[in-house]
């Protein structure tokens, strides 16, 4: 079977669910709003100008995760996957189409989020804000980070076959683990997907990962989750 019709079908599925469109809108709104709030009341001691502008990504990525999770979880309800796979029996191809259909809208919305957040951050922070080269790197990093987190969640959902299970693993993980060890620059934590990716949103870094190597680590996490998801979808009875 050719790929384009399967991708078309998956894009229709995403466009036709309000909750998914809502999650995409929430990525922009939540990221920009929390960033603006953080910028308006900056930390006292030597704030990182770029991360002050992009502080809201910690919340925006939850919307991105919700998007990736919901898009895949919808297939695991009420026998939906069986109907999908009767239409597209080539399971790896179907899963690839699903992944692209998730990545494309998040890439577009993520870029918009990066741009809006940067503009708002620069406006609020003024002279304390990031420079343009830093800011552009941040905007692109923000876009990629959101996309990778959505894909990471999508892969995990395909393995766990449940949106509730995925969100109850990921949300506490992101909210507690990352926040609790957030200030400690301990070795292992730097390689967790969200921490690694967010190096790209800092003006300066002192850990083992730089902005691009950090995003690469995050991409490895997403790729591992997606491969596990593809394997799970292909091997198990539907």
């Amino acid at each position: 079977m050719p790929f384009a019709p399967v991708l078309h079908a998956e894009l229709i599925k995403i466009r036709s669910l309000r909750s998914l469109v809502g999650s995409l809108a929430a990525i922009v709104l939540v990221t920009a709003a929390f960033s603006a709030l953080a910028s308006a009341s900056p930390e006292e001691n030597d704030p990182d100008p770029l991360f002050s502008a992009f502080f809201g990504i910690g919340f925006g990525q939850i919307a991105a995760i919700a998007f990736g999770t919901t898009a895949v979880a919808a297939e695991f309800r009420g026998g939906a996957l069986r109907l999908t796979l009767t239409a597209t029996p080539d399971r790896p191809r179907w899963f690839a189409a699903k992944v692209v259909a998730i990545a494309l809208p998040v890439l577009v919305v993520g870029l918009l989020t990066g741009a809006v957040t940067l503009l708002v951050g620069k406006a609020v922070l003024g002279a304390a804000g990031p420079t343009w080269p830093q800011g552009l790197r941040g905007a692109v990093g923000c876009d990629l980070q959101l996309t990778l987190m959505a894909l990471f969640a999508a892969g995990l959902t395909a393995v766990l076959r449940s949106g509730v299970a995925t969100l109850s693993v990921l949300i506490p993980f992101l909210l507690t683990v990352s926040f609790v060890i957030g200030d400690m620059s301990s070795g292992i934590a730097d390689f967790l997907p969200d921490r690694a990716g967010q190096v790209a949103l800092h003006s300066a870094w002192d850990g083992p990962l730089g902005p691009w190597s950090g995003l690469a680590v995050c991409a490895l996490w997403a790729a591992a989750a997606l491969l596990a998801g593809a394997w799970s979808v292909s091997r198990r009875d539907a």
């Binding site: 229709i12 599925k13 036709s16 669910l17 909750s19 309800r77 009420g78 939906a80």
Partner: peptide, 15 residues
Amino acid sequence: LEAGAAHRSRTARDH
């Protein structure tokens, strides 16, 4: 196979 295969939040036409 199952009547529940269509997502509840989608319209029949979009499904």
